[in-house]
């Protein structure tokens, strides 16, 4: 299996040399990174090329890298240090928190493809150039199934898709405000909904519950080695 993937990888590197930024095989999965301007071109090639032959699009999803690699609970080097709470909150629910500083590209669109003919998979990763107004080209023309997956990414992450035939919200409520899967959107949301007896209708109010973290995010540095690492090493 990995031989076939290596062949595919070198084939792609040869034929898409200037468009593919990187191609990596990890955990038996091939990931290529493609600049957003080349996405449709690369996708069409992957579908039509005989060696690639990806007839089917399995999944498209957005990823928000705003808080990537940040833990809520830092400990110093020795095993006995106390946890330190960060001064910002992860979901922006805490008013006193500072705005999370972020440079680099925030939103990525990750596409998974499957070739039934050749029995292999590939993952395409493409970052949106603009963090404020993320745009990506739509793959709907290449694989029709992308339609709904892209609507979902738009709904949940606010990523816009060029040339999408029908870019409406899909999973959230009619009239919903915001993009709930962004990392700065609080888990508890912004509004509560209830039926009001006096007004005889459903009304929205600011949330009445508080956000709380039961288990903090922890990143254990000791496991930088990827090969066969196991959780929790070096913290006893």
């Amino acid at each position: 299996m990995s031989d076939a993937l290596n062949t595919l990888k070198s084939h792609l590197e040869a034929s898409l040399a200037d468009k593919v930024e990187s191609a990596v095989i990890e955990l038996g999965e091939l990931t290529i990174e493609v600049g957003s301007q080349y996405l449709v071109e690369v996708a069409t090639f992957l579908r039509d090329d005989a060696t690639a032959g990806f007839e089917q699009l399995i999944d498209v999803c957005g990823v928000d890298y705003l808080t990537y690699g940040q833990s809520e609970w830092d400990t110093g080097g020795s095993g006995f240090s106390r946890g330190v709470k960060r001064e910002f909150s992860f979901d922006g629910s805490d008013d006193t928190s500072e705005k999370i500083e972020f440079d680099g590209k925030r939103f990525a669109v990750v596409t998974h493809l499957l070739s039934i003919k050749n029995n292999h998979r590939i993952r395409i990763k493409s970052y949106c150039d603009d963090n404020e107004f993320p745009i990506m080209d739509s793959l709907e023309d290449v694989w029709n199934v992308a339609n709904w997956f892209e609507r979902e990414a738009f709904d949940l992450f606010g990523i816009m898709f060029n040339n999408h035939p029908d870019l409406r919200r899909i999973l959230t409520d009619y009239g919903f405000i915001g993009h709930p899967f962004r990392k700065d959107f609080p888990l508890i949301g912004h509004v509560d909904m209830r039926y009001d007896e006096e007004q005889k209708r459903v009304i929205y109010e600011p949330v009445s519950i508080e956000n709380r973290t039961l288990v903090p995010r922890v990143i254990r540095e000791a496991r930088a080695s990827k090969s066969n690492s196991i959780a929790g090493e070096g913290d006893e």
Partner: peptide
């Protein structure tokens, strides 16, 4: 209390 940490990376399993 904490669970286990996964190594950095990404995976898709179908």
């Amino acid at each position: 209390t904490e669970g286990y940490c996964l190594p950095e990376g990404e995976a898709y399993q179908a």
